[in-house]
């Protein structure tokens, strides 16, 4: 692949996903409104479709303010860390057989690694802001991400016992005989539940939004950010949510494979199936957000270290047993 080709693909991804992220923000706002018996933004464009575009334009045109004693270099670097890692991870997601920018043989490992770099951006932003709320928020983010990274990794590892490959295209290939959540039955369902809980915590969304807990910390780590830099953090949160849902789709629900192979002859429909599955999972995360109350820090750590981690470890052993005895359900 030549450099120019790479740059072009990067630009295309950047364009598609920054717009897609904006629409996710809109979706979240509409869904939130429906959960609360409100209507939500419906004025700008048909059914408010252009609302977040207008918001983004407003944020671009705003003045960038910052604290006087902030560490200027790190302060400006932080939002880029967060957004770039979020966009980088999208490169390995298989939208269809051909629509995958970067099919490396350590795909899952790459995803886990990249998604934990994002937290460095949050830590940098919190530290460099020179603000106590931002610092507390960033430290909480560190605690949370380090803890829940374990569960994300282990639940994906459980599924890798089934697929015997880290490469995402291979993982999809294995699922042609039934999605992994069916193939792996009980341990796979447990792994999926653990992954969704840990994934929600990874993206710092409610009920795990200790990082920006409005009632305690103002806006958390991005208290001191404004304008476009704030928009980067905001967009990154939504791209990360999409990413967690996309990983779950790929690993548990057969990525771009259609249910029972009903549209196998039309390969480009894979994008539709992939996005449909992903959006259902995104909706599930929004449902969590507008239902559950926020956890305390100690409850957050109890959940991870006393519940999710032991369950996960036992689950891996069960999955190993299932694979060893060949108790997999395949069509």
């Amino acid at each position: 692949m030549s450099i120019i080709e790479m740059v072009l693909i990067a630009l295309v991804y950047l364009g598609i996903f920054s717009v897609a992220g904006l629409f996710l923000v809109l979706l979240e706002r509409r869904v939130a409104a429906w959960f609360q018996l409100r209507i939500g933004p419906n004025r700008v464009g048909f059914q408010g479709l252009l609302q977040t575009m207008a918001d983004a334009l407003k944020l671009v045109s705003k003045e960038l303010t910052g604290t006087e004693k902030a560490d200027k270099f790190l302060y400006n670097l932080a939002p880029y860390f967060v957004i770039i890692t979020a966009l980088m991870a999208l490169g390995v997601i298989p939208f269809t057989k051909d629509f995958q920018a970067f099919d490396i043989n350590i795909g899952i490992f790459f995803l886990i690694a990249i998604s934990s770099i994002g937290v460095i951006g949050i830590l940098l932003g919190g530290w460099a802001s020179n603000n106590k709320f931002a610092l507390i928020g960033a430290m909480r983010s560190g605690v949370q991400t380090i803890s829940y990274e374990l569960s994300v990794g282990l639940s994906l590892l459980t599924m890798i016992l089934l697929t015997r490959s880290l490469q995402l295209s291979e993982i999809v290939e294995v699922q042609k005989n039934g999605w992994l959540i069916v193939q792996g039955h009980i341990p796979a369902i447990i792994a999926f539940m653990v992954f969704m809980i840990a994934g929600t915590a990874e993206t710092n969304r409610a009920p795990f939004d200790m990082v920006e807990a409005e009632s305690e910390l103002g806006a958390g780590f991005h208290t001191e950010y404004s304008g476009m830099k704030f928009a980067y953090f905001f967009l990154a949160e939504f791209i990360n949510m999409f990413l967690i849902a996309a990983i779950a789709t790929t690993v548990f629900f057969g990525a771009w494979l259609s249910p029972f192979g009903i549209t196998e002859s039309i390969p480009w429909l894979g994008v539709f199936w992939f996005l449909l599955k992903t959006l259902i999972l995104v909706f599930l995360m929004m449902w969590f957000r507008w239902t559950f109350p926020r956890l305390r820090v100690d409850q957050l750590l109890t959940l991870e270290w006393k519940y999710l981690l032991p369950i996960n470890l036992v689950n891996i052993v069960i999955m190993a047993f299932v694979v060893w005895q060949n108790l997999i359900i395949q069509f």
Partner: peptide, 22 residues
């Protein structure tokens, strides 16, 4: 208990078309 909570909010979500208070 989490599922109970989700059932309550889910019911509101499905009825939001009819009963929006805005």
């Amino acid at each position: 208990t989490l599922l109970t909570g989700m059932r309550v909010t889910g019911k509101y979500f499905l009825n939001s078309r009819k009963g929006a208070i805005t």
